[in-house]
Amino acid sequence: MIGEAISSPCLSARGIWKIFGNRPRRALEMADTGASRAEVREATGCTIGARDVSFDALHGETFVIMGLSGSGKSTLLRCVARLSPLSRGSVILEGEDLTAMTEAELRSVRRAKLSMVFQHFGLFWHRRVIDNVAYGLEVQGVDRKTRHSKAEEMLDLVGLEGCGGSYPHQLSGGMQQRVGLARALVVEPTVLFFDEPFSALDPLIRRDMQDELLRIQTGIGGTVIFVTHDFDEAIKLGDRIAVMKDGEFDQVGTAAELIMNPATEYVEEFVKGVPRVKVLRVGDVLTELDGPAPPQRVPAGESLETVLPLLVANTDDIAVLDDHGTAVGRIDRAAVTRLIQPQP
C-alpha cells in the first residue's frame, strides 16, 4: 500500500523471548520443554511477555504488530527497540546485532538510525515545541541554528507551522502527537517505532493522524514498526500485519491474506467485523484466465467496492490488469460472492 522499495530485511527479530519475574531462567527452561504460559506462571510466578517471536521488517515496509492489551505487543516492541532487556534472542538492524552491542555502540546506532513515537507522547513538557523537535539533533551535538531550522521544517511537514515557540501543554492532544511525530522524523531515522501512538486521541483526530502518517511515510519512506490494538488501524497502515496473542504471533500477512485466510479463530474474530469490500482489492480475488482476456478490464489495485456495480451489472468476465497494463487474470465471481455473504 505504501511501500515502493520493499525488498531486503531492514530489521530482523530473531527468537525474541521476554520473561517478567524473578526466575526467568527457570521459566525459560520450562517453556523450552513446551510448558504453557499458565503452567510457567503457576510454577515460577513468571509471566511470558514474548515467546520466541521472529519477524523481518523489510526496507520501506510498514510492519504492524496488532494485539489486544496483555498480548505482549508493547513488550515486544520495547525489546526490539532495546528499551527493555530481552531474555533471549537477537535484534538485527541492517546486519548489525543490536543485542550484542555495548551501551555506547547502541547509542550511536540510535542517534543515526532509530526513532520512536510514544503512546502518551513522551514529550518534554519543560521545553518549547521547537526544542522538543530538535532534541534528537541536540544530543548529537548539532549546533543550535542548524537544528532549529531542521526542526522548523519538520513542524511545517506535520502541519504545526508557527507553533515552535509554544510549550507542548498549550497544544491539543492531536497537536501534541504531531510534535511527537516531528521529533521522531527530524533525525531521518532508518527505522521508526510507533507504540500505539494514536490510541490516546479521539477517533476523528486519530483518523487525521493516520492519514498524515500515510502522507509523510510516502514522502520519507523509512521502515516503520507500528504497534496497535486497533485492527482497522492495522489494515489502514500496515503493509503486513502480525496478529499477536499471549506473547506469540498467531498469523503474519497482508491485510488481504488475513481476511481471506485467517489462520486461527482468534484472527477470524478480528476479521469478522471488517468491511471486506472496502479493504480488499481486485487483485485479491483473482483467478486464472481461461482463454483470451475479456474486454471489460480493471486495474488490480482497484478497491473491490468500486467494481461491485460492474459485477452486478452483467455476467461477463472482467479482466484484471497489473501495473504495466497486462492482463493477469479475471475476477473470481464465486470468491466475491463468498465475501459479500453475511458472516455466520
Binding site: A81, L83, R107, S108, V109, R110, R111, A112, L114, S115, M116, F118, Q119, H120, F121, G122, L123, F124, W125, H126, R127, Y135, G136, E138, V139, Q140, G180, R183, V187, F193
Partner: peptide
C-alpha cells in the same frame, strides 16, 4: 516515556539527566 524518548534519540545518561529528568 519522556526518558525513553530521550534514550531512543541516543542521549547519554548524563544528557538525559541534565536535559530531561532534572528539568
Amino acid at each position: 516515556q519522556s526518558v525513553e524518548a530521550s534514550t531512543m534519540f541516543g542521549a547519554t545518561r548524563w544528557q538525559t539527566l541534565r536535559k530531561v529528568q532534572i528539568p
